[in-house]
Nucleic acid binder design. Structure first.
Lengths: 331, 331
DNA sequence: CTGTCACGCTAATGCGCATTACTGCAGGGG
DNA sequence: CCCCTGCAGTAATGCGCATTAGCGTGACAG
């Protein structure tokens, strides 16, 4: 007892499979070409049988699916980073619902060298019409291949070209960081430190670029995350940290030295925490518009699938006033 | 320049498409039928071109997909209930990864009368080989139709028959509640109250049944959630609440009356909070094995797809000691 | 009375793959 | 000499649908 097909419907309605297809898709031209009487008859049979077209066959023939893939380079559901990615998914799901698409979580991608890879033996990307890519760090080679194959995809987060322009919906880290630097300068700060990678993934590079641009001509040093506490030795009065956890670390260290936060020392965090941090602290910094990024990524993806060219959007970050940035009181 | 197909590979390797398919699937029989020389030639071309079979066509031809659907009657990602459902998804994802399936979130299902419906104009269930159903309350008619159509699905949470037995992986609420009642009786409690729906969805009905069985022959009343505070007027020394939020409410009310919790009054919660509750309180109760339920649901679903008959599992709940159940000190 | 057109529909084809049935060939037994 | 068997592969078919080309009929102009 296989499931019902268009042929069955056709037989029951006394028409051809073609007619069923035409009625079903309500194609322009079919509207006029098929009289209401026949159409109703077909529709009635469809309703009675509860028939629905097999989306797979449909896609095979038509090339469309209304399935959007979601590929995440870092694990989304479990673990600590999960909380960071959750808001993106909320936006993605919301938007997918609006545009009437289903979401395919590419969970079957195996780990290779500790990372998920899109392309692997028997990859299943093509199940979806297009794909949203999530992750701090995307594989350049894979991106290049996606571009080369002309597969529609949108990155959540800005990406450099990879053998061609890449569509993305990112956060404007550069502007956000620059603004915060300027705010600090307005409060009298002249010596700055940046703690974090500041390179590698675009999101870090963008932050650091904003920092460099904002502090151009001023005293400004950059330290890796591992040396976070040493930022206190640099003479900086305003420390910008990529990661909340590092901010908390520096805060503690400052406390031990008897430095008053926002008085002797200001700390600014650059984005939402990606690791769980003892963060009852109300850091000055900004918020990444994660849900909105997810939403718009799906929007852009559907446009792409419709055939539009690459789209690149940077969304503004919302500044968080917080209480860790104050007037510089160091002579 | 469409994507590469088996035909292309065949042309490049100087063989037929059939041969490519045979090599690719390494079919028993093909192993012997195709000499290593030819196979290597084909494999080399495949490697050079980076070809991968279109999973869609594959499924169309073979009838399988390795896609598992996830349908949720209540919204999963956003909102408050999201936190409740999250653990299920974690388990589902984990298990899906293990069995090498992708997950299709049926997000395109529209709301009808405020609820999601599986069956609607152009439903897309059949995209997946089978489906995991999530939600406190599933639509009986829809279940019946799924059963009638022979579509493989597993409910997370026990379900009554609907025109046939339904596969599920549920939590054994009945036993858990009964155990808690017995524990309370062991501590000298003789008058009980149950606050919550106690009917309707299976999960509530099961809890209530456990309560009734445990308190058989004793003083035991049942109150709707709206009248939670009135539980204090019933003379009950042990109050069982379906929902943490109600427990918190009763706790407050008890405080106002000067009743000591676990002393004058014991409160037991029946499961994890589904609404965010001011729950720094360490309630005595039990935990629903949510992740495990998700995991096993996927397991069962794959069995079902392989052709097994209905499977029904009840998983034990883990009792939580907590601090709100104490010896009855009321004369 | 023929040519043309619109109408209402259908036959045929192909999407990319898996599968089944078959073919051409070589070698060996009868 | 023919038949059989095994080998190494190929042609053909179909999955369920969308799409294109086309067909039979009646109406109507010329």
């Amino acid at each position: 007892m296989g499931r019902i097909t268009q042929r069955d419907i056709a037989r029951l309605a006394g028409v051809s499979q073609t007619t069923v297809s035409l009625v079903l898709n309500n194609r322009p031209g079919a509207e006029t070409r098929i009289p209401a009487e026949t159409r109703d008859r077909v529709l009635r049979v469809i309703r009675e049988t509860g028939y629905v077209a097999d989306p797979l066959a449909r896609r095979l023939a038509a090339g469309r699916n209304r399935i959007l893939g979601v590929f995440t380079y870092e694990p989304v559901f479990p673990s600590a980073t999960g909380d960071f990615y959750h808001p993106f998914l909320v936006g993605i799901e919301e938007s997918a619902e609006q545009v009437g698409c289903d979401l395919l979580l590419l969970t079957s991608a195996p780990l290779v060298d500790g990372r998920k890879r899109i392309y692997h033996q028997d990859h299943r990307l093509r199940l979806a019409d297009g794909c949203v890519l999530l992750g701090r760090e995307l594989d350049r080679e894979e991106l290049a291949r996606l571009v080369a194959e002309g597969y529609p995809f949108v990155s959540v987060g800005r990406r450099d070209d990879a053998g061609g322009p890449i569509s993305y919906v990112g956060a404007d880290y550069g502007s956000a960081v620059r603004e915060l630097v300027e705010k600090a300068r307005g409060l009298g700060h002249e010596k700055f430190a940046y703690v974090g990678q500041g390179a590698g993934p675009e999101s870090f590079a963008d932050r650091h670029r904003g920092f460099r641009e904002g502090t151009a001509g001023l005293h400004a040093v950059t330290l890796p995350s591992a040396d976070a506490e040493e930022a206190l030795l640099t003479g900086a009065t305003a420390i910008f940290v990529e990661e909340h956890a590092d901010g908390a670390l520096i805060l503690q260290a400052a406390g031990r030295r008897g430095l008053a936060v926002a008085g002797d020392l200001s700390i600014v965090t650059l984005g939402d925490p990606t690791r769980p941090a003892p963060t009852d602290i109300d850091f000055t910094g900004f918020r990444i518009p994660r849900a909105e990024m997810g939403r718009q990524a799906v929007e852009v993806l559907t446009e792409l699938i419709e055939g539009s060219g690459p789209v690149q959007r940077l969304l503004p970050c919302e500044l968080v006033k917080g209480s860790t940035l104050g007037r510089n009181n160091v002579a």
